[in-house]
Design a binder for these strands. Structure first.
Lengths: 162, 162
DNA sequence: TCGCGGTTTGACGTGGACGTCAAGCTTTCT
DNA sequence: AGAAAGCTTGACGTCCACGTCAAACCGCGA
């Protein structure tokens, strides 16, 4: 599981597909599938097309998994979210690429909007799940109440006059 | 869309499968599939096996949909959750069926446990989504900050000495 | 009575997200 | 160097949650 290194590696740790699979908890098949879906592109190919991943892609893979499992997004939706994430991550690059303040501001504006859309979606989901949870919580309260009454009843009933 | 009624209906409103479909926002095919998966059984069959649903089933169908879409549960998982829900709903019946306090208490205990397991799951999900949301919120903060600095910068830079 | 809308069962099709070989080619270990 | 382990690109299979016909069967309104 030791990262692949070469003598001169610019200190950038890289990984083979199997290593990425173990580190992220998905199969190699899944990684290739995600690549085919344009969600996760390996940093490079070496030799006979062997995929090479960097830490960034490990991160990204974990994020994809989380969006899928935790948020219940389809890969298509994951793609949309990741695009907005890309905007944020690549912001620095685009930012440096064109130092004109007007352009910079526009880039940031767009990133903000994309991010806010995602935030709104998350907040909506949170609120709805919270409602669900509260409903269940209330039911739990009632159940505990009834249970308590039952216990008290069976204890006090003997004292009641017949 | 008016509910099917007969002269003596015991005041229980009933619905045909197409009406249920419209009321719950799923297709009739889906309703039959859910029935096949033992998730939603119509109250009765009349005539040549025509399905008859009551308000309770409407409720249940909406719940199934919510568990699927909002919580991202598979139908198998939905089944588990609904079973615990059934326990709660059928509690009154079982409750009356056996008036021995010991048995009542046991029924309630089990319902409480099932409910608590679901609650824990919901809370975990909520916490994790909240984390996700906060991460995004922080990013939004930084973006707004940078945007503000940019705007201020383009306004003040002219005042700076070259 | 006839047509028409709604329903039934049954069977086959579909899209998404992979699983699972196969055959051949590198990379790594000893 | 040579075996073992890992990677490559296909290509076909699978599971879930339905979609989409087809053919037959009520019920009722004109």
């Amino acid at each position: 599981m030791s990262p692949s290194t070469s003598v001169v590696d610019k200190d950038a740790t890289t990984w083979r597909i199997g290593e990425v699979a173990k580190l992220t908890g998905v199969t190699t098949r899944t990684l290739r599938y995600w690549e085919q879906m344009r969600l996760l592109t390996p940093k490079a190919h070496r030799g006979a097309g062997e995929r090479v991943y960097s830490d960034a892609e490990i991160h990204r893979a974990k994020r994809i998994k989380e969006l899928q499992e935790l948020l219940g997004f389809s890969l298509a939706e994951v793609g949309v979210v990741l695009e907005t994430e890309d905007v944020l991550d690549r912001l620095r690059d685009a930012y440096r690429a064109d130092p004109k303040p007007a352009h910079r501001l526009q880039v940031i504006q767009r990133a903000i909007e994309a991010n806010d859309r995602l935030l709104a979606r998350l907040d909506d989901k949170l609120a709805r799940i919270q409602d669900f949870r509260d409903e269940r919580g209330a039911k739990a309260q009632r159940l505990h109440q009834v249970a308590a009454e039952l216990r008290a009843g069976s204890a006090t009933r003997r004292k009641e006059r017949p």
